[in-house]
Every structure is written in structure tokens, then in C-alpha cells.
């Protein structure tokens, strides 16, 4: 395998590898909660909405992490305000707020005239990961995993039964915004690998694939992060060998795993469902 020897030789490839694996794992973990809470659109929104934050950080010459997190939080709060204090439904609120942030981001990025161009932020370029990016991703990843591990019980019950959670005094709104903060951090960590446009796929698709394979949240999380990591590494490989856009390749790999699972999953797959239903028909 030429890829393996290249991996040994080139530092930039090692950085890309570590970054991809971490991104795949944390997207899978957070993605499970996003999927189960029916917040896929919110995931898409937050990831797009970090753009103006990135641009402003470039202008101010600070690490883009700070601006992106701030923009993400403002978006989550803005969506909350619009949907809770009016009759506008939550999906429309999400659409209104995030497209405004994204549009602002496009203009600001053009004005910022940074070395990193818009395409790279939008679609990712895993091979251009710098040491500082890698460390940031690894640190964000460690924080995200730690928070999920510590508050697993609270995340589980508030996702499954928010009413009971509120009845016994869990601060469910705080948990919601906490999750949005984690989501923003995951997006920032994924910028270099898949880019803001396609982060949602790495959040939703591996988690949904895992959802078809198990009846336990803990196993769903492990499977989702495994699928995420595999997709990211395979994406890196193709991107390196064939000079393809890493984000796009990663997304297509997650989709391929999803399609296979969608058809062949032991209980939920359409093939077995079809076989079962035709058996039932002949039995009846």
C-alpha cells in the first residue's frame, strides 16, 4: 500500500489523518443526539451560520474558533427567540436566521480577503490541515467527548422524554443550548475536513445508519462514530490519491454505508422487511 508509506513519510498526511478520525468520531457522537431530537435542520443551520464568525475572526486576526463559536451561539439564540416569541414555527425560524448569517458570512469573507478562500471553508480541504488546526480539532474533540460522557444520562433522558425531565427539575433549555454549543464546536473542528456545507451530512448520515442497526443509544453512538471515522479516513485516501475534494468524498462514503445498511440491516433494512411481509402474506 503506497498510501501507508506516504502516511509514514508525509507529516501533512498524518495531521490530516488524525484530524479526520477525530472529526468522524465527534460528528457521529453529536449526530446521534441531533438525529434523535429531530434537529437535523438545526445542525445544518448552525454549521452554515458560523461563516460570518470565521470571517470576522480573520479580520481581527484572531483564531477563527472564537468567532465561529460566537456566531453559532448567536444563531441558536436567535432561532430560539424567533420561534418562541411568535407563531412562526421552528423550521421557518431556523431558515430565516441561518440564511441571514450565511449571507452575511459570504459578504464578510470576500471583504476579509484572507489567505484561506471561501471555497476551502465551504467545502473543506483536509490535506491543508496545519498543526494548529489539528491540535484545535483534537482538543475540541476531547472536550466534546468528555462532556457527552459526563452528562450522558441527562442527554439521554432529555432527548427521550423532555416532559419527565422538566418535571423532575432538569434544566432542559440549558441542555438544549449546551448541545448547540457542542454542535458549534464540532462544526468548527470539521471546517477543514468537510467544510460548512457538508458537515450536516457527517452529523446525520452515520447516526442515521447506526439508528437502523441497534435499539440502544450507547451502541448507536459507538456505531455512528465508527462509521464517521471510517468515512473520514476513506475520504482522505481518495482525496489524496485522486486529488478530489475531501468533503465531497467523505459525504459519498457515508452515503454508501447508509445505502448498504438501508437495504441489508437485519431488522430495519428494506430487504428483510420485504421478506418478512411476503412471508406473512403467504402464511395468511
Amino acid at each position: 500500500m503506497e498510501f501507508i508509506s506516504d502516511l509514514m513519510t508525509y507529516g501533512f498526511l498524518q495531521k490530516a489523518l488524525f484530524t479526520s478520525i477525530m472529526v468522524g468520531i465527534i460528528c457521529g457522537v453529536i449526530g446521534c443526539f441531533i438525529v434523535l431530537r429531530g434537529m437535523a435542520l438545526m445542525g445544518d443551520a448552525i454549521s452554515h451560520a458560523v461563516l460570518p464568525g470565521v470571517a470576522i475572526s480573520y479580520m481581527l486576526g484572531i483564531n477563527y474558533f472564537y468567532g465561529a463559536v460566537l456566531a453559532g451561539i448567536l444563531t441558536a439564540l436567535g432561532i430560539g427567540v424567533v420561534s418562541q416569541s411568535s407563531r412562526i414555527k421552528s423550521d421557518s425560524s431556523i431558515g430565516i436566521v441561518f440564511s441571514a448569517f450565511f449571507a452575511l458570512g459570504i459578504i464578510l469573507i470576500a471583504k476579509a480577503q484572507s489567505a484561506t478562500d471561501l471555497t476551502q471553508i465551504l467545502f473543506g480541504n483536509v490535506l491543508a490541515v496545519k498543526s494548529s488546526d489539528m491540535w484545535m480539532t483534537l482538543i475540541i474533540g476531547a472536550i466534546v467527548l468528555l462532556v457527552v460522557a459526563v452528562f450522558y444520562k441527562e442527554l439521554l433522558i432529555s432527548s427521550f422524554d423532555p416532559t419527565m425531565s422538566a418535571a423532575y427539575g432538569l434544566p432542559i433549555r440549558l441542555i438544549h443550548y449546551g448541545l448547540m454549543l457542542l454542535l458549534t464546536m464540532v462544526t468548527v473542528a470539521s471546517l477543514q475536513t468537510v467544510g460548512v456545507i457538508l458537515v450536516v451530512s457527517l452529523l446525520i448520515t452515520p447516526a442515521s445508519t447506526a439508528y437502523l442497526l441497534t435499539n440502544r443509544l450507547s451502541i448507536m453512538i459507538i456505531l455512528a462514530s465508527t462509521f464517521g471515522a471510517i468515512s473520514a479516513v476513506v475520504g482522505l485516501y481518495f482525496s489524496f490519491i485522486y486529488n478530489l475534494s475531501s468533503g465531497a468524498v467523505i459525504v459519498l462514503v457515508t452515503t454508501a454505508i447508509f445505502i448498504v445498511t438501508f437495504i441489508f440491516a437485519p431488522n430495519q433494512g428494506i430487504l428483510w422487511r420485504f421478506i418478512r411481509s411476503s412471508k406473512n402474506k403467504t402464511a395468511a
Binding site: L36, L156, S159, F160, N215, R216
Partner: peptide
């Protein structure tokens, strides 16, 4: 009010 598809036994 419950999501009966939630992955929980």
C-alpha cells in the same frame, strides 16, 4: 407524546 422509535429497551 413519546417517540416510540427511540433506541431504548
Amino acid at each position: 407524546n413519546i417517540d416510540w422509535d427511540f433506541p431504548i429497551i
